[in-house]
Design a protein around this nucleic acid. Structure first.
Length: 558
RNA sequence: GCCCCUGUAGCUCAGUGGAUAGAGCAACUGCCUUCUAAGCAGUGGGUCGGGGAUUCGAAUUCCUCCAGGGGCGCCA
């Protein structure tokens, strides 16, 4: 069981006893916390329950604390103490820690995992329009989305990682027109890239690939292109573009289970069906030849267009409503998490309002908004735009600093903080990236374990563990927090916590390594060696599990 | 004009109601005949943007002001 949950249970029990004794009725338990105190000398965990009770009981919090403490079954703790102005501090016992470390070794790759939830959850992330290669601004959502998916999976959610392919709408038409102009360029003919087209180098590369794969386009005359021919080229362009995106994601260890096409919603009539439902709810009207939805009536600041007046085609919002109805009502996801850029924030409220009308509990519609990543150069912020192609491609970054350092850097900031990246600094700093420190800790552990194997020391049959030094104890405590960490992140989606934990764990590993030799000069495997090998193994398991959840590698040597 | 995010050490950022505000990097001082020095031990560094309020207690909640960024489309 998770430590804080265990302590909560103990405290609730103690509280209940106290209430029974005092014959208090009509009592609602106050909200209180169990947490790790900042100052370690106070203990491993602390609660503010007595202070929260002080007003209700009209009693001094210190006295309440003592009463609660007396109700405690103290076997699992080395010490329970009361501190002013009314904290109860808990110090975990060695026996308890040793039990947890053994459990870690027994569970191996499953240490930290849960087996309770089993909810069907969808994580939609990246979902960048297939109009070119991924660039710097897309890395963050990609890394956050894949990590949160891994974490949820570890907590026994059934996770579908999905990429929503915006293959309908006029952006895609502009993309296809850009491709045509680039093919004309390759043909040596006159070509013209207008402002609304995509002008990046990646478009030219995609055009080359199209010609390679479909040589008919080598001498194709686009001057009288029919609608069908345009659609055909569009399909081909999207396919090649998506393959490029897949390669980019693969280089960062990111995979999707499902690539969901926007146009499939339209082709299958699902959009129309959704609109019919909205009509029945009396939310649809026509004005100025466009079709609108009454979002203002639902609480938004204005109504929104679902079908444009010009060509009667659906807006992004219209298909997105259908898409989300599909997620909940067709595929029965119990929980949906969208990793969106902050530019979507106005979209969230509207979507919630409509989902509620469609009988979806908005609680199950979660959005992780990640703030924009911008580029700094010569102390000036550069705004990048995909259309003008002035951005840095994801592939360049990965090539330059490596996938592990890249993932770690983008994971280590909380999603709502803005990131401004000075590219030169970013690249040069990558050598000092904490990821190498963490991986080095892992490699050192592996080196010890390899040594044990060569010496044929069996420490896993009997597993006799005795935590003695301060380094061993601190390391063991950190390891026991790992399941707690994963559980917390699966609820608050704060994936940046993982990087901080990884760093702290690695520091404790390095200290253990430096100060607690596992092997003496001629060690044949005495009790201290065996005990330390158990800690070594548990540390390695924990760190490797964590790195794997973050989508990073755990090198055995460096 | 309205909405959202941010402001914490020289730099990049954690900490969002608890006890003496932390980490990485940078700076400085020591430590390699012992399992990997990509390491360890230690030192310096703070008006938590300003002001006010709430309470036993505020970097954290509320109000206000200042600064930076983003959004407010019949684009996606």
């Amino acid at each position: 069981m998770l430590i804080t949950k265990f302590l909560h249970n103990c405290l609730n029990e103690a509280l209940q006893k106290l209430i029974d004794e005092q014959n208090i009725t009509n009592f609602t338990p106050p909200a209180y916390v169990v947490e790790k105190p900042k100052n370690k000398t106070h203990g491993d965990y602390a609660t503010n329950l007595p202070m929260q009770l002080a007003k209700i009981f009209k009693e001094n919090p210190i006295d309440i604390a003592h009463k609660i403490k007396d109700k405690f079954d103290a076997d699992n703790f080395e010490e329970i103490s009361v501190a002013s102005p009314g904290f109860i501090n808990f110090k975990l016992s060695k026996i308890w820690l040793e039990k947890e470390i053994i459990r870690c070794i027994d569970l191996k790759n499953n240490f930290g995992n849960q087996n309770k939830n089993n909810k069907k959850v969808q994580v939609e992330f990246v979902s960048v329009n297939p109009t070119g290669k991924l660039h710097l601004g897309h890395i963050r959502g990609a890394v956050i989305g894949s990590t949160i998916s891994n974490i949820l999976e570890s907590q026994n959610f059934t996770v579908t990682r999905e990429y929503y392919v915006n293959d309908a709408g006029n952006q895609i038409d502009f993309f296809c027109k850009s491709i045509i102009e680039r093919i004309k360029e390759l043909q040596g003919k006159d070509f013209k890239i207008t402002d609304e087209m995509y002008s990046g180098i990646d478009i030219l590369n995609i055009s080359k690939k199209i010609i390679n794969k479909y040589p008919d386009y080598q001498n194709y005359d686009f001057s009288n292109i029919t609608e069908d021919e345009f659609e055909e080229l569009k399909k081909i362009s999207i396919e090649i573009c998506i393959n490029e995106i897949m390669d980019d994601l693969k280089s960062l260890n990111i995979y999707h289970d499902n690539w969901f096409s926007e146009s499939s919603l339209i082709d299958a009539g699902y959009l129309d069906e959704t609109i019919d439902i909205l009509k029945e709810l009396n939310l649809i009207y026509v004005k100025d030849e466009a079709t609108w939805i009454k979002t203002e009536e639902l609480g938004d600041d204005r109504d929104n267009v679902l079908f444009k007046s010009s060509d009667k085609k659906p807006t992004y919002f219209a298909t997105d409503i259908a898409y989300h109805r599909n997620k909940f009502k067709e595929r029965y996801f119990e929980k949906v998490i969208n990793v969106w850029g902050s530019d979507h924030h106005g979209h969230i409220k509207r979507m919630e309002l409509i989902l509620e009308k469609l009988n979806v509990d908005p609680k199950n519609f979660n959005v992780i908004l990640n703030q924009i990543v911008s580029l700094k150069s010569n102390n000036k912020t550069v705004k990048f735009s995909k259309r003008s192609g002035n951005s840095i491609f994801l592939s360049e970054i990965v090539e330059e600093i490596g996938a592990d350092a890249c993932r770690f850097s983008f994971l280590s900031r909380s999603s709502e903080s803005q990131m401004e990246i000075d590219l030169d600094l970013f690249k040069s700093k990558s050598a000092e990236n904490p990821v190498f420190y963490i991986q080095y800790a892992h490699a050192r552990l592996c080196s010890i374990l390899k040594n044990a194997k060569e010496k044929q020391i069996d420490f896993e049959t009997e597993k006799i563990l005795s935590l003695e030094t301060i380094e061993e104890i601190n390391l063991a405590k950190k390891i026991t927090e790992f399941p707690e960490l994963l559980h917390r992140v699966s609820e608050n989606y704060g994936v940046h916590e993982l990087t901080f934990f990884a760093l702290e764990l690695s520091q404790l590993i390095q200290k253990f390594y430096e100060n607690n030799r596992v092997f003496d000069k001629d060690s044949k495997g005495d009790q201290i060696t065996k005990s330390r090998l158990i800690i070594t193994k548990a540390s390695k398991i924990t760190l490797a599990n964590l790195l794997s959840l973050m989508g990073m590698s755990s090198p055995e040597e460096m």
